[in-house]
Design a protein around this nucleic acid. Structure first.
Length: 248
DNA sequence: CGGCCCTAATTT
DNA sequence: AAATTAGGGCCG
Protein backbone atom coordinates (compact mmCIF):
# COMPACT_ATOMS: atom_id res chain seq x y z
CA UNK A 1 0.00 0.00 0.00
CA UNK A 2 2.72 2.40 0.96
CA UNK A 3 4.54 1.70 -2.29
CA UNK A 4 1.46 2.62 -4.28
CA UNK A 5 1.32 6.06 -2.67
CA UNK A 6 5.01 6.52 -3.30
CA UNK A 7 4.54 5.59 -6.93
CA UNK A 8 1.59 7.98 -7.23
CA UNK A 9 3.55 10.82 -5.66
CA UNK A 10 6.49 10.25 -7.96
CA UNK A 11 4.25 10.09 -11.00
CA UNK A 12 2.56 13.37 -10.10
CA UNK A 13 5.95 14.94 -9.47
CA UNK A 14 7.25 14.00 -12.90
CA UNK A 15 4.04 15.05 -14.64
CA UNK A 16 4.18 18.47 -12.96
CA UNK A 17 7.84 18.90 -13.92
CA UNK A 18 7.06 18.02 -17.50
CA UNK A 19 4.08 20.39 -17.63
CA UNK A 20 6.11 23.26 -16.28
CA UNK A 21 8.89 22.65 -18.75
CA UNK A 22 6.50 22.63 -21.66
CA UNK A 23 5.01 25.93 -20.57
CA UNK A 24 8.37 27.55 -19.91
CA UNK A 25 10.53 26.60 -22.82
CA UNK A 26 12.56 29.79 -22.40
CA UNK A 27 13.60 29.17 -18.79
CA UNK A 28 17.21 27.96 -18.38
CA UNK A 29 18.20 25.13 -16.08
CA UNK A 30 18.43 26.37 -12.50
CA UNK A 31 21.81 27.30 -11.08
CA UNK A 32 23.47 25.97 -7.94
CA UNK A 33 21.07 26.15 -5.02
CA UNK A 34 21.31 29.28 -2.93
CA UNK A 35 22.92 31.36 -5.65
CA UNK A 36 19.72 32.74 -7.12
CA UNK A 37 16.23 33.97 -6.32
CA UNK A 38 13.66 33.07 -8.98
CA UNK A 39 10.97 35.73 -9.49
CA UNK A 40 7.96 35.14 -11.71
CA UNK A 41 6.56 38.25 -13.38
CA UNK A 42 3.61 38.61 -15.68
CA UNK A 43 5.77 38.65 -18.79
CA UNK A 44 9.15 37.28 -17.71
CA UNK A 45 11.06 35.12 -15.23
CA UNK A 46 14.21 36.43 -13.56
CA UNK A 47 17.01 34.65 -11.78
CA UNK A 48 18.17 37.35 -9.39
CA UNK A 49 21.70 37.39 -7.97
CA UNK A 50 21.64 38.71 -4.43
CA UNK A 51 25.41 39.17 -4.32
CA UNK A 52 25.65 41.19 -7.52
CA UNK A 53 22.31 43.07 -7.14
CA UNK A 54 21.56 42.38 -10.79
CA UNK A 55 19.90 39.43 -12.54
CA UNK A 56 21.80 36.30 -13.60
CA UNK A 57 19.36 35.99 -16.46
CA UNK A 58 15.91 37.11 -17.52
CA UNK A 59 13.78 34.83 -19.73
CA UNK A 60 10.54 35.47 -21.57
CA UNK A 61 8.30 34.19 -24.36
CA UNK A 62 7.72 37.05 -26.76
CA UNK A 63 4.59 36.47 -28.83
CA UNK A 64 3.40 38.46 -31.82
CA UNK A 65 0.54 39.85 -29.70
CA UNK A 66 2.98 41.07 -27.05
CA UNK A 67 5.31 42.74 -29.55
CA UNK A 68 3.08 45.78 -29.90
CA UNK A 69 0.52 47.81 -27.96
CA UNK A 70 -0.64 51.18 -26.65
CA UNK A 71 0.69 51.09 -23.09
CA UNK A 72 3.10 53.92 -22.42
CA UNK A 73 6.46 53.42 -20.73
CA UNK A 74 6.16 53.52 -16.91
CA UNK A 75 7.33 56.86 -15.54
CA UNK A 76 9.80 55.72 -12.89
CA UNK A 77 12.09 52.86 -11.95
CA UNK A 78 11.05 50.72 -9.02
CA UNK A 79 13.11 49.27 -6.20
CA UNK A 80 12.12 45.59 -5.95
CA UNK A 81 10.63 45.00 -2.49
CA UNK A 82 10.58 41.25 -3.07
CA UNK A 83 14.34 40.82 -2.73
CA UNK A 84 16.34 41.42 0.46
CA UNK A 85 18.44 44.50 1.14
CA UNK A 86 21.00 45.54 0.13
CA UNK A 87 19.37 45.84 -3.29
CA UNK A 88 19.54 48.33 -6.15
CA UNK A 89 17.87 51.70 -5.58
CA UNK A 90 17.31 54.72 -7.81
CA UNK A 91 20.02 56.53 -5.85
CA UNK A 92 22.59 53.94 -6.94
CA UNK A 93 22.03 54.73 -10.62
CA UNK A 94 21.73 58.49 -10.20
CA UNK A 95 24.86 60.27 -11.37
CA UNK A 96 26.69 56.97 -11.89
CA UNK A 97 27.28 57.55 -15.59
CA UNK A 98 25.54 54.22 -16.35
CA UNK A 99 22.06 54.00 -17.80
CA UNK A 100 19.18 51.72 -16.74
CA UNK A 101 19.49 48.78 -19.13
CA UNK A 102 16.28 46.74 -19.25
CA UNK A 103 16.84 43.01 -19.74
CA UNK A 104 13.20 42.32 -20.67
CA UNK A 105 12.61 45.56 -22.61
CA UNK A 106 9.85 48.08 -21.97
CA UNK A 107 9.09 47.74 -25.67
CA UNK A 108 8.11 44.07 -25.17
CA UNK A 109 5.51 45.04 -22.55
CA UNK A 110 3.31 47.55 -24.36
CA UNK A 111 0.45 45.02 -24.37
CA UNK A 112 -0.31 45.25 -20.62
CA UNK A 113 -0.03 47.94 -17.95
CA UNK A 114 1.04 45.58 -15.18
CA UNK A 115 3.66 43.92 -17.38
CA UNK A 116 4.97 47.37 -18.34
CA UNK A 117 5.22 48.43 -14.70
CA UNK A 118 7.03 45.22 -13.76
CA UNK A 119 9.53 45.75 -16.57
CA UNK A 120 10.71 48.84 -14.67
CA UNK A 121 11.66 46.90 -11.53
CA UNK A 122 15.35 47.31 -10.80
CA UNK A 123 15.70 43.50 -10.64
CA UNK A 124 15.12 43.59 -14.41
CA UNK A 125 17.97 46.09 -14.92
CA UNK A 126 21.72 46.20 -15.29
CA UNK A 127 23.92 49.28 -15.41
CA UNK A 128 24.48 49.63 -19.15
CA UNK A 129 26.51 51.92 -21.37
CA UNK A 130 24.18 54.58 -22.67
CA UNK A 131 25.15 54.41 -26.31
CA UNK A 132 24.92 50.60 -26.28
CA UNK A 133 21.50 50.80 -24.62
CA UNK A 134 20.01 53.06 -27.27
CA UNK A 135 22.18 51.72 -30.08
CA UNK A 136 23.11 48.13 -30.86
CA UNK A 137 21.24 46.57 -27.91
CA UNK A 138 18.10 48.46 -28.90
CA UNK A 139 18.53 47.21 -32.47
CA UNK A 140 18.66 43.60 -31.29
CA UNK A 141 15.54 44.15 -29.18
CA UNK A 142 13.73 45.57 -32.20
CA UNK A 143 14.82 42.59 -34.28
CA UNK A 144 13.32 40.27 -31.65
CA UNK A 145 9.96 42.04 -31.89
CA UNK A 146 10.14 41.83 -35.67
CA UNK A 147 10.88 38.08 -35.47
CA UNK A 148 8.07 37.53 -32.93
CA UNK A 149 5.64 39.07 -35.42
CA UNK A 150 7.08 37.17 -38.36
CA UNK A 151 7.29 33.73 -36.71
CA UNK A 152 4.43 33.98 -34.20
CA UNK A 153 6.73 33.98 -31.19
CA UNK A 154 10.34 33.67 -30.02
CA UNK A 155 11.88 32.52 -26.74
CA UNK A 156 14.49 34.90 -25.30
CA UNK A 157 17.03 34.78 -22.50
CA UNK A 158 19.49 37.57 -21.74
CA UNK A 159 21.68 38.81 -18.95
CA UNK A 160 25.08 40.08 -17.91
CA UNK A 161 28.50 38.55 -18.53
CA UNK A 162 31.08 38.84 -15.76
CA UNK A 163 34.43 37.59 -16.90
CA UNK A 164 36.68 39.72 -14.69
CA UNK A 165 37.61 38.86 -11.12
CA UNK A 166 36.70 42.32 -9.85
CA UNK A 167 33.78 44.39 -11.05
CA UNK A 168 32.99 48.07 -11.12
CA UNK A 169 30.02 48.88 -8.91
CA UNK A 170 27.68 51.84 -8.58
CA UNK A 171 26.11 53.43 -5.52
CA UNK A 172 25.99 52.66 -1.84
CA UNK A 173 24.50 49.24 -2.58
CA UNK A 174 27.38 48.31 -4.88
CA UNK A 175 25.31 47.31 -7.89
CA UNK A 176 27.67 45.43 -10.21
CA UNK A 177 28.41 46.83 -13.66
CA UNK A 178 28.71 43.88 -16.06
CA UNK A 179 31.56 43.67 -18.54
CA UNK A 180 29.26 42.46 -21.33
CA UNK A 181 25.81 41.11 -22.12
CA UNK A 182 24.49 37.97 -23.78
CA UNK A 183 21.20 37.26 -25.49
CA UNK A 184 19.95 33.98 -26.95
CA UNK A 185 16.84 33.68 -29.11
CA UNK A 186 14.96 30.50 -30.08
CA UNK A 187 12.36 30.18 -32.83
CA UNK A 188 10.19 27.06 -33.01
CA UNK A 189 8.32 27.87 -36.20
CA UNK A 190 9.31 25.61 -39.08
CA UNK A 191 12.66 23.98 -38.50
CA UNK A 192 13.69 25.19 -35.02
CA UNK A 193 16.56 27.66 -35.00
CA UNK A 194 18.46 29.75 -32.50
CA UNK A 195 20.94 32.60 -32.47
CA UNK A 196 23.02 34.29 -29.80
CA UNK A 197 24.64 37.69 -29.30
CA UNK A 198 27.52 38.75 -27.07
CA UNK A 199 28.18 42.49 -26.75
CA UNK A 200 30.68 44.35 -24.58
CA UNK A 201 29.23 46.93 -22.19
CA UNK A 202 30.84 49.92 -23.86
CA UNK A 203 30.34 52.38 -26.69
CA UNK A 204 32.66 50.73 -29.16
CA UNK A 205 30.13 48.56 -30.95
CA UNK A 206 29.93 48.35 -34.72
CA UNK A 207 27.91 46.11 -37.02
CA UNK A 208 25.43 43.72 -35.42
CA UNK A 209 26.64 40.72 -37.40
CA UNK A 210 30.01 40.88 -35.64
CA UNK A 211 28.44 39.90 -32.32
CA UNK A 212 26.67 36.71 -33.37
CA UNK A 213 27.44 33.52 -31.44
CA UNK A 214 25.96 30.05 -31.27
CA UNK A 215 23.96 29.18 -28.16
CA UNK A 216 26.66 26.60 -27.40
CA UNK A 217 29.21 29.39 -27.27
CA UNK A 218 27.02 31.51 -24.97
CA UNK A 219 26.56 28.46 -22.74
CA UNK A 220 30.32 28.12 -22.56
CA UNK A 221 30.67 31.79 -21.56
CA UNK A 222 27.87 31.76 -18.98
CA UNK A 223 27.90 28.19 -17.70
CA UNK A 224 24.13 28.10 -18.18
CA UNK A 225 22.05 25.44 -19.94
CA UNK A 226 19.56 27.20 -22.23
CA UNK A 227 16.29 25.70 -23.49
CA UNK A 228 16.69 22.47 -21.46
CA UNK A 229 13.06 21.51 -22.16
CA UNK A 230 13.85 20.92 -25.84
CA UNK A 231 14.21 17.30 -26.94
CA UNK A 232 17.95 16.57 -26.96
CA UNK A 233 18.27 16.06 -30.71
CA UNK A 234 16.61 19.44 -31.43
CA UNK A 235 18.57 21.18 -28.67
CA UNK A 236 21.87 19.87 -30.03
CA UNK A 237 20.98 20.97 -33.54
CA UNK A 238 19.77 24.51 -32.84
CA UNK A 239 22.44 25.34 -30.29
CA UNK A 240 25.38 24.44 -32.48
CA UNK A 241 24.37 26.71 -35.39
CA UNK A 242 23.88 30.49 -35.64
CA UNK A 243 23.16 31.75 -39.11
CA UNK A 244 21.78 35.28 -39.45
CA UNK A 245 20.67 34.53 -43.01
CA UNK A 246 18.04 32.17 -41.55
CA UNK A 247 16.48 35.18 -39.82
CA UNK A 248 16.30 37.65 -42.73
C1' DC B 1 21.77 64.11 -45.42
C1' DG B 2 17.08 64.68 -42.79
C1' DG B 3 13.18 62.24 -40.86
C1' DC B 4 11.77 58.61 -38.06
C1' DC B 5 11.78 55.02 -34.46
C1' DC B 6 13.57 53.58 -30.44
C1' DT B 7 16.39 54.04 -26.10
C1' DA B 8 16.80 56.92 -21.47
C1' DA B 9 18.09 61.38 -18.92
C1' DT B 10 16.96 65.90 -17.79
C1' DT B 11 14.21 69.84 -17.18
C1' DT B 12 9.97 72.29 -16.21
C1' DA C 1 3.33 64.28 -14.74
C1' DA C 2 4.68 66.18 -18.99
C1' DA C 3 7.71 68.14 -22.15
C1' DT C 4 12.27 68.58 -23.77
C1' DT C 5 16.91 67.00 -24.68
C1' DA C 6 20.21 63.60 -26.03
C1' DG C 7 22.31 59.17 -28.22
C1' DG C 8 22.12 55.83 -31.93
C1' DG C 9 20.88 53.41 -36.22
C1' DC C 10 17.98 52.51 -40.29
C1' DC C 11 15.77 53.99 -44.36
C1' DG C 12 14.97 56.82 -48.29
Amino acid sequence: MRNIWLLLALTLFFISCRAQKEEQLEVPALLDKGKEIILHRKSYVVSYNQGLKIPNWVAWHLTAEHADGDIKRFASYLEDEEVPKPRATNEDYKGSGWSHGHMCPAGDNKWDAEAMKESNLLTNMCPQDRSLNSGLWNRIEMDCRKWAKKYGSVYIVCGPLLYNKEHETIGANKVVVPEAFFKVILCMQGRPKAIGFVVKNNAGTKKKDQYINTVDEVERLTGYDFFPALPDNIENDVESHANIDDWK
